[in-house]
Design a protein around this nucleic acid. Structure first.
Length: 271
DNA sequence: TCCTCCCTGTTC
DNA sequence: GAACAGGGAGGA
């Protein structure tokens, strides 16, 4: 379940693996994983030096140094996607869906047990034809408190609005539940006022930054590009803790379905 | 705005 | 052997 902090961590830990290297080819093992109008062989007809890695919402980005029609790659890891740089002697696993071949013989595997994840080439035409990219809301760590409150203000349950990537990019079930608990806002609350949404932004920024410092949350599948687990799962106040005592008041945490997602919250501390 | 579906490994 | 996990597309 890589959300913003996990994808940010993967981008940072992947950077050394691509630094100074070039992409020489892309091998697609699962056809559905390559969701791009550009054939993978056309991404690097000649070796393409890498420039950097990055992130937009939950998308992992890899950019090329030279200017070409295709200037980078985007990966959505969805729930079970993983990125593994590996030396030339390591063979792909049964869940390897796509392989990036590098000029030193090493490879970067994109594994995804559930096949929900995908990769795309980034070109101006590809982006123009990609509604998801074009509808992504601002980054929560870059938007102001006031702008955040404006975007989240509305009729639907606040958790649904927080999860909607059109409003704010990069928030998934974990950081939605954790930030709502810290802000004392019930996930099903509607018409939450601007002041309380400002508090939600404060808490969201804090929880995201702490999770980034801790290299993300590893529940089961997520690992950094180095293969390490994150540690923020040890700091969860509510996520995955239905029935356990609330960290603030000690009453049992409620597990319910909100915005079509499993949601854990405290009925006493969150209003 | 809300629900279902896509997938498959893991848990009950 | 069924329920569950869930991001986002697509339909109601």
């Amino acid at each position: 379940m890589p959300e913003l902090p996990e994808v940010e961590t993967i981008a940072r830990t992947l950077a050394p693996a691509v630094a100074g290297r070039s992409l020489t080819g892309i091998t697609v093992l699962n056809p559905g994983t390559w969701q791009s109008g550009i054939h993978p062989s056309l991404v690097c007809p000649v070796p393409r030096p890498f420039a950097s890695t990055g992130r937009r919402g939950k998308l992992l980005l890899i950019f090329f140094a030279d200017q070409g029609d295709v200037f980078g790659l985007a990966f959505h890891l969805k729930m079970t996607g993983r990125i593994f740089p590996r030396s030339a002697d390591v063979q792909p696993g049964k869940h390897t869906r796509l392989i990036m071949e590098l000029d030193d013989g090493s490879r970067i595997f994109f594994d995804d047990a559930r096949k929900f994840g995908y990769a795309r080439a980034l070109s101006h035409d590809e982006i123009a034809a990609w509604p998801f990219w074009n509808s992504l809301g601002p980054e929560p760590l870059e938007i102001s408190r006031e702008a955040f409150a404006d975007r989240l203000h509305g009729a639907g349950p606040v958790k649904g609005r927080l999860l909607d990537q059109k409003n704010i990019a990069g928030i998934g079930n974990i950081y939605a539940d954790e930030s709502l608990f810290r802000a004392g806002i019930a996930p099903y609350a509607r018409f939450v006022g601007k002041e309380r949404l400002g508090i939600l932004h404060d808490e969201l920024v804090k929880v995201l930054n702490q999770a980034i410092r801790e290299c993300g949350s590893s529940i089961r599948d997520y690992r950094t590009a180095n293969g390490d687990a994150g540690t923020f799962q040890n700091s969860f106040a509510v996520y995955g803790r239905g029935g356990e005592p609330c960290p603030k008041c000690g009453r049992p945490l409620t597990k319910a379905r909100v915005a079509s997602r499993t949601t854990v919250f405290c009925e006493h501390c969150q209003r």
